[in-house]
Simulated scan of single mutants.
Amino acid sequence: MDVLSDVVAVTRTGRPRSAHVRWHAPWGQEFAAVPGSAGFQVVLRGSCWLLPPNAEPVRLGTGDVVFLPHGSGHTLADSLEGLGAAPACDPADREPYDAYASDSVDRTGEGGQVTVVLCGAYRLDPSRTHPLLLTLPDLIHLPARSDRDPGLRAAVELLAAELRDPRLGTDAAVPALLDTLLLYILRIWFAERPARGATTGWAAALNDPPVTAALHAIHRDPAAPWTVARLAAEAGLSRAAFARRFATLVGQPPLGYLTWWRMTTAARLLRTSDAPLRSLAGQVGYTSEFAFANAFKRAHGTAPGAYRRMG
């Protein structure tokens, strides 16, 4: 798998939630902060305001996508003027996972202008959060643009259709479409960051062919006996040049990242499979169960067996 696919597959846990909501003005909705989660809002029809904490309000129009990778609290409202007079949120709505539990919701106001929003939230496993996600800002706003990746719009439309009109297979389709939407959001964000002058960090790393080649090699086969020299060969650079370049862009040395990814993969396998520890150790590059157990305990603070039982 490539880096971005692995970020979604490994970091997300549980079942993502989403809802197709119609609001009738005047309205206002608070979404509480939920650490260990990520959320998104997509305006399907009409317009509204997003009020992030400690930041200026953001005007959202039809087709705009907002991603909140750190579960930041925020408010949506039809207008800034009527926000103070907006009805109080239902207690159940103060917990975003409850607010997103219904497939389709119609919030009736006084018959004013209608705004339709696609809301969603993902639970993230803090122990497996990829550093790529940690570097993201609290709020990512992708305004609707005709030249933006059409795949994003297609994913939004498919997800909205499933939530608006549930049919056979919807329970399987919605989580897959939510993962697809998340991938498109991240893909667009990291593709556009270099245009804003990003020269270090994951935005630069994912747009740097040599470093990306090495990252893909690690993610494609974490059990391989990688050395800095072998990874440099994948990148097409000398050993020294590659090591400097990788550390500058990714923020840690190549073998440091390799070890982190192996331990992150091991944590996921411990929670999702019943494979014996010897087999699992081999899947992440350790020929000795003892060496694997020691490395895992250094990374996660607990032995592999105990970690599995905690899940």
Rank of each mutant, 00 (worst) to 15 (best):
D179R: 13
T115Y: 11
L134N: 12
G36H: 01
C48Y: 05
P209V: 01
E192C: 03
S238A: 14
G73K: 04
T302Q: 14
R193K: 10
S72E: 13
L133I: 10
G285Q: 08
I140A: 01
G73H: 02
L60P: 00
W202F: 14
T212Y: 14
R308N: 08
E95M: 13
A267T: 06
D208P: 04
D221V: 06
G84Y: 08
A144S: 15
R153H: 10
A121G: 13
A214G: 09
R271D: 12
D179H: 11
S127I: 01
G256E: 05
Y286E: 14
R298V: 12
D165E: 15
D171E: 11
P126F: 04
T115A: 13
A155V: 00
R262A: 01
A160P: 00
Y100P: 00
R196F: 08
A160M: 00
P137L: 02
P35R: 04
L182G: 10
Y100I: 04
A235I: 10
H300F: 14
L237G: 08
Y257Q: 11
R164H: 04
T199C: 10
A203M: 04
G111M: 06
G305T: 08
S127P: 05
E234Y: 05
A306C: 05
Q41A: 15
D103N: 12
F40W: 07
W49D: 01
A281M: 14
L76E: 03
D221I: 00
G301D: 05
L270R: 03
V65T: 08
T264K: 05
R187H: 09
A247P: 09
G311K: 03
D93Q: 06
D165L: 11
Y97E: 12
P53Y: 05
F292V: 08
S18Q: 13
L249F: 08
L44Y: 02
P52D: 06
H216C: 00
G120A: 07
P126Q: 06
G282C: 06
T265H: 09
R94L: 15
D171C: 00
A172H: 10
R22L: 13
Y100A: 12
R107E: 12
D90E: 15
P254M: 01
L163C: 07
P53C: 01
A267H: 09
G39M: 12
C48T: 03
A144K: 05
T272C: 02
P69M: 11
M1R: 07
V66S: 03
A198L: 08
D6P: 04
E56R: 12
P26G: 11
V228M: 07
L277E: 14
I218F: 09
Q113Y: 09
L158M: 14
V10F: 09
P254N: 01
A25V: 10
